[in-house]
Design a protein around this nucleic acid. Structure first.
Length: 467
RNA sequence: GCUCCCUUCGUCUAGUGGCCCAGGACACCGCCCUCUCACGGCGGGAACACGAGUUCGAGUCUCGUAGGGAGCACCA
C-alpha cells in the first residue's frame, strides 16, 4: 500500500512555524517512501476561517517549496458527504440525536468535575431512541464504546492506551448543521486514503475517539505520529507576543526557505552529528520514527547560523531573486547602483540575513545617510588624511578601467608611495565611502560605490578632513 | 480536578547496559589570521532533574518524587 500523508491546517491565521514543521515532516515522509502528500483545508469553523488565511497558508507553503501531490481540498465542499456518513451511523445505531441545551451540558460538566471526574456528557439520549425532531439544540452524537480500551502504537510517542470509560459521546454534527472536527477528519482521512496521520501532539487526546470512529465505520485505522510542540526561547508555547510565529515573518526577517527547512528538520530530529541537509538528504534520511518525544525550543540564533551558511555557500545566482525582494522592500530602485549579485557576494559573509544585507547595501544604493563622528575624527582628521584622500582620488581618476583589482592596486600603490601600511590608506577611504569604519574589503567597497560616486564621496570627505 | 505525555551542556541534539570521568552543533570566552567588520583555523568553560532499585556494571532497564506540557467544547 502506498503511503499517503496529509497536512490539514485550519485557515484561521497564517502558517506558523509549528505548522510548517508538521507539513515538512509529512512531505518528507511521503517522499522518502514514494507516497503522496495531500493538503486539506479544515474550514468547518465558518466563524473563524477566512480566505485571506487560506491564501496565506498556500503562499507560505509555496515559498517554502513544500509541494503537495493532491489538494487543496476544502471541508466546506464536502458537507453532503459528512451528512451521508452521519446518516449511515444513525441508521446503524452507532450515533444518536441529542437535544440538551448548552446550559444543561455545562451543568453536566460541572457535576462530573465535582465528582472528581473529567467533565463530560452523561449520555442521556444514548439509548433513548429519540426520533429526529426539529429543535435548535439538535446535535448528533457518536456512541463511543463504554467498555474496554483503545490501544495504538504512536510512531513517535510509542504505545498509548486509553480506557473507553474516559471518553464520552462526542458531538459529530453541531446544531448549526456542520460536522465537528473530530468527525470530519476521520471521514476525510478515510476518503482520501490517508495511511499516516502526522500532526501536533495536541491531538493525541483526540486519537482514541477517532480510532473508535474508524472502527464504527469499518475503516482501516491509519498509523499515527504525534509531534511534540515547538516552544519559544523561554520554554513557553510560541506566541505572537513573544516571538515571530508566522513563516512569512521569517521571510521578512531575511531568512531563506531552505535554511528554515533545514533548521526545522533538525528541531526534534537528527541524523548523528549532521547539521546541514540538502533537500535530497532530508528526503533520503528523514524518518518519522526517529523524531524525539520531547518538545523543543525555537532558537533564532541557530537558524541565523544556518541561514548565513547557505548565504555564503549557495550559488549567488540562486539567491539574487530573494535578495532583490528585500531590496525592493527597502525602497531600492534597481535601475541604478551596483548589480545585486555583486553586493550579495561582498556582504554574504558579513550578515546573517538578507534583510540585514539589504540594510547594509544601502551605502551603495543611497547617499551616505550619516557620518559617524568617531570614524571621521579618527580617520579623516589626522595628519595624513588629506594626502591619502587626494592621492587615492588622483589615481582613481587616472585609471582606465573600473574593477576591484584596480582599486586594490590603487590602494597598494598609494600605501607604497606614502610609506604607509595598507590599513592607513584603507580606513580613511572606507570612511569616505561609507561614513563608517566598517564595510567589506576596501576594493569591493570602492568598486561597488561606482567611479563617479566614489570620487564625489572623496571630495565630500576632503571637505570634512579640511574643516 | 481528571486523563495522557515529557525530562542529557543556556539551546538543538548523539547516546538503545560496558566503546561515556558523556560526543557534535549553535551561542559564549580566548588565541591566530587580517585594511575595518566578517569568514576561516585552533583552544576553553558548560549537561545525564532527584531518589530508590535491577545488574559485576545504568545516561541507557524498573518504580517513586519533583518539575514541565497537552487535552478534557456544538474550536480545530
Amino acid at each position: 500500500m502506498t503511503v499517503r500523508t496529509r497536512f490539514a491546517p485550519s485557515p484561521t491565521g497564517f502558517l506558523h512555524i509549528g505548522g510548517a514543521r508538521t507539513a515538512l515532516y509529512c512531505w518528507l515522509e511521503a517522499q522518502r517512501r514514494g507516497g503522496q502528500f495531500v493538503l486539506r483545508i479544515e474550514d468547518t469553523d465558518r466563524e473563524r476561517s477566512t480566505d485571506v488565511a487560506v491564501q496565506a497558508i498556500l503562499d507560505a507553503m509555496q515559498w517554502l517549496g513544500l509541494s503537495y501531490d493532491e489538494g487543496p481540498f476544502y471541508q466546506t465542499t464536502r458537507l453532503a458527504r459528512y451528512q451521508q456518513v452521519a446518516a449511515d451511523l444513525l441508521a446503524a445505531g452507532k450515533a444518536y440525536y441529542a437535544y440538551e441545551t448548552r446550559e444543561e451540558i455545562g451543568d453536566m460538566r460541572a457535576a462530573a468535575m465535582a465528582a472528581g471526574e473529567k467533565p463530560r456528557y452523561n449520555g442521556y439520549y444514548r439509548d433513548r431512541n429519540e426520533p429526529r425532531r426539529d429543535d435548535p439544540n439538535r446535535v448528533i452524537r457518536f456512541k463511543n464504546p463504554r467498555e474496554g480500551s483503545v490501544v495504538f502504537e504512536d510512531k513517535v510517542k510509542g504505545r498509548i492506551e486509553w480506557a473507553n470509560s474516559e471518553l464520552d459521546d462526542l458531538v459529530i454534527f453541531r446544531s448549526d448543521g456542520w460536522p465537528t472536527y473530530n468527525f470530519a477528519v476521520v471521514v476525510d482521512d478515510i476518503d482520501m486514503g490517508i495511511t499516516e496521520v502526522i500532526r501536533g501532539d495536541d491531538h493525541v487526546n483526540n486519537t482514541p475517539r477517532q480510532i473508535n470512529m474508524y472502527q464504527a465505520l469499518g475503516a482501516r485505522v491509519p498509523e499515527f505520529a504525534h509531534l511534540p510542540m515547538i516552544l519559544d526561547k523561554e520554554g513557553k508555547k510560541l506566541s505572537k507576543r513573544t516571538s515571530a510565529v508566522s513563516v512569512m515573518e521569517y521571510r521578512e526577517a531575511g531568512f531563506l526557505p531552505h535554511a528554515i527547512l533545514n533548521y526545522l528538520v533538525r528541531l526534534g530530529w537528527s541524523h548523528g552529528d549532521q547539521e546541514l541537509f540538502t533537500a535530497q538528504e532530508m528526503i533520503a534520511l528523514f524518518a518519522i520514527t526517529d523524531v524525539n518525544k520531547a518538545p523543543s525550543r525555537f532558537d533564532v540564533e541557530k537558524l541565523a547560523w544556518i541561514n548565513q551558511h547557505y548565504l555564503k555557500t549557495d550559488d549567488p545566482q540562486t539567491l539574487v531573486a530573494e535578495f532583490e525582494w528585500h531590496l525592493a522592500r527597502a525602497g531600492v530602485d534597481l535601475s541604478h547602483g551596483p548589480a545585486p549579485v555583486d553586493v550579495l557576494v561582498a556582504l554574504r559573509e558579513r550578515v546573517h540575513t538578507l534583510k540585514e544585507m539589504a540594510e547594509r547595501a544601502m551605502i551603495w544604493y543611497a547617499p551616505i545617510a550619516q557620518w559617524d563622528d568617531k570614524a571621521v575624527a579618527k580617520h579623516l582628521r589626522n595628519a595624513n588624511s588629506v594626502a591619502i584622500l587626494q592621492m587615492a582620488k588622483m589615481r582613481l581618476e587616472a585609471a582606465t578601467e573600473w574593477s576591484p583589482a584596480l582599486v586594490h592596486e590603487v590602494v597598494e600603490q598609494s600605501a607604497a608611495e606614502l610609506g604607509l601600511g595598507l590599513g592607513k590608506i584603507a580606513q580613511p577611504l572606507r570612511v569616505a565611502m561609507t561614513g563608517t569604519q566598517v564595510s567589506p574589503s576596501i576594493e569591493d567597497t570602492v568598486y561597488l560605490t561606482g567611479r563617479s560616486e566614489a570620487l564625489k564621496r572623496i571630495d565630500a570627505a576632503l571637505v570634512l578632513a579640511q574643516a
